[in-house]
């Protein structure tokens, strides 16, 4: 299985995400710089990491979404390559149109940095297959712009199609319908604000996030 992690100027969770990919797959991901116009051959999984790409200029994720590498990521997503965007990565995916909606400033105006209880709403996706539907997990969150917004027709559609993958147990940032993570229509792109890569080994205090990566890799190896 070959994976890649995209690195923008200002990314700061790229190495954590690379460690998570390697921990479950045994293979080091390729780190791909934002100015690259192509991804390496044969990539099965792309990580779009958290951080403050381009200093959050204009809007969080807006500049990164227009960087050369994101066109290659969009083409790969179209072909069915798995794409996981976490935190700023989720913002980049909505800004680039790979996922619907937008992430607004948190409703309370504060940066939220804490553990968040989440409910796994859809346990059928490639990203959530190792969880049970309705299971409660705890991932850390650390964001200022995590308030998910979409018009009510889009929200209804996301709910109806099982594309709300994760939901906050409590409102922590004002997100519409407490949405914490959503899938694209084909199910191969997941964007989420919480950080599963920060809870993958006992030294992290919790390991709830590990199964997300294990499930992904397991599915990719089974299909290889």
């Amino acid at each position: 299985m070959k994976s890649a992690v995209i690195v923008f100027p200002g990314s700061n969770c790229d190495r954590d995400l690379a460690v998570a990919f390697e921990a479950v797959s045994g293979e080091k991901p390729v780190m791909v710089w934002h100015r690259d116009i192509e991804l390496p051959e044969g990539i099965d999984l792309i990580g779009v990491p958290g951080g403050f790409s381009y200093g959050d200029y204009l809007r969080s994720g807006a500049m990164a979404a227009r960087s050369p590498v994101m066109q290659a990521v969009a083409k790969a997503a179209e072909r069915g390559t798995y794409v996981l965007g976490i935190c700023n990565g989720f913002q980049v995916l909505t800004e680039s149109g790979l996922l619907p909606g937008a992430l607004l400033r948190n409703a309370g105006g504060h940066f939220v940095c804490r553990d968040a209880s989440l409910t796994v709403e859809n346990a059928q996706s490639a990203f959530t297959s190792r969880y049970a539907a309705g299971e409660q997990v705890t991932f850390p969150v650390a964001h200022h712009d995590g308030n998910y917004f979409a018009d009510s027709a889009t929200l209804d559609r996301l709910e109806g199609e099982g594309r709300v993958a994760l939901r906050y147990a409590d409102s922590i940032n004002g997100s519409a319908r407490n949405i914490a993570g959503i899938l694209n229509e084909a199910g191969n792109v997941l964007g989420m604000m919480p950080h599963p890569e920060r809870v993958i080994e006992p030294a992290h205090g919790k390991t709830d996030g590990r199964r997300l990566f294990e499930g992904l890799v397991e599915g990719l190896l089974a299909n290889a």
Partner: peptide, 10 residues
């Protein structure tokens, strides 16, 4: 209809 926490703070 889009929440504006910055406007609220101002």
């Amino acid at each position: 209809g889009v929440l504006d926490p910055q406007g609220k703070a101002i």
